[in-house]
């Protein structure tokens, strides 16, 4: 059997060196391991090198810096959820983070891992995209920022190049009278992978008219997809039932789902509308409460 190396570097530079030196495709970054270890167990991947990034301080914290909430990529969601700045600023992202698996999974799983795993059904990815979050990537050429919206390129694939890893996520603080919401559909109440996820962010003017909105769906296409038509249906409206209904229809139209044991194409298309409507209403209610 091939032996596997485990390394836990303490600095970004050391991690980049380890990843750069490894033969292409042979190294894996370990954050919470809730996806990685399962994939290793079922034999889907067989890495020669595991680089555990949890000893690197830059991947661990959560703090407001330069007008954004900076979330360490390997910070477990159970700790993240207790950060006062998260729930206050981004209730939708907080609810998405709280939906990743059980308390046990939350003790390990991170937003960075959720993003890098590049599953179309990841709960926090739509929630990060509607907030305009950026991913900070470290690599042999230094650091770079990529919008989360562009980070995932397909199921299981990302923009990360050789020697690169995700250090942190930067979520711009919300404008006044803005709020977000995330809803997902699972067959049970817990412990399932999203059949459909819908994240919505909205900004209202003083009169309650929507001036900006973003709508992103999960689990209905190879990657999370932004639905500008749904956002357009919301912008300019007072988020009345008719506008919400149009946004829902736009969500259905944007879906490009598959049939699998978790849901049918038809089901996912219908539920995308329902969740988008409900998430938009929830986001609007939150935004109206913020003056």
């Amino acid at each position: 059997m091939e032996s596997m190396h485990y390394e836990s570097p303490a600095t970004v530079a050391e991690a980049v060196r380890l990843l750069s030196d490894a033969p292409p495709g042979s190294a894996r970054v370990l954050a919470g391991g809730t996806d990685l270890l399962v994939q290793m167990r079922i034999g889907r991947i067989d890495p020669a090198l595991i680089v555990d990034v949890k000893r690197i301080p830059e991947t661990r914290g959560v703090a407001v810096r330069d007008g954004a909430l900076v979330i360490g990529a390997s910070l477990e969601t159970m700790t993240l959820r207790r950060a006062p700045d998260l729930e206050k600023n981004f209730p939708g992202l907080a609810e998405a983070a709280a939906l990743i698996g059980s308390d046990q999974i939350q003790g390990r799983a991170s937003l960075g891992g959720n993003l890098c795993n590049a599953s179309p059904a990841a709960d926090t990815v739509p929630a990060l995209i509607v907030l305009g979050a950026q991913a900070e990537i470290a690599g042999p050429e230094g650091t770079r920022r990529v919008p989360v919206a562009e980070f995932v390129t397909g199921p299981g694939s990302t923009v990360l190049g050789r020697g690169e890893f995700l250090v942190s996520l930067h979520v711009p603080l919300p404008a006044p009278r803005s709020a977000d919401a995330y809803l997902r559909l699972i067959p049970r109440t817990e412990m399932d992978i999203a059949v459909v996820g819908s994240a919505v962010s909205v900004t209202l003017d003083a009169g309650g008219t929507c001036t900006a909105a973003r709508v992103v769906l999960g689990a209905v296409a190879p990657t999370a997809i932004e639905v500008p038509e749904a956002a357009a249906a919301l912008i300019g409206s007072t988020l009345d039932d008719a506008a919400l209904g149009r946004a829902g229809q736009a969500a259905t139209a944007a879906c490009n789902p598959i049939n699998d044991m978790r849901g049918t194409v038809e089901y996912r298309r219908k539920v995308a509308a329902v969740l988008t409507r409900r998430a938009a209403a929830k986001a609007a209610e939150r935004a109206a409460g913020r003056n």
Partner: peptide, 29 residues
Amino acid sequence: CTTGDCGACSVTLDGLLVCSCLVLAAETE
């Protein structure tokens, strides 16, 4: 289950609840 779906292997790691089947032993250093 060894996939984090049943919780029978629950332990705490620095006080946080985790599935010990989803932690590498080496990580507990």
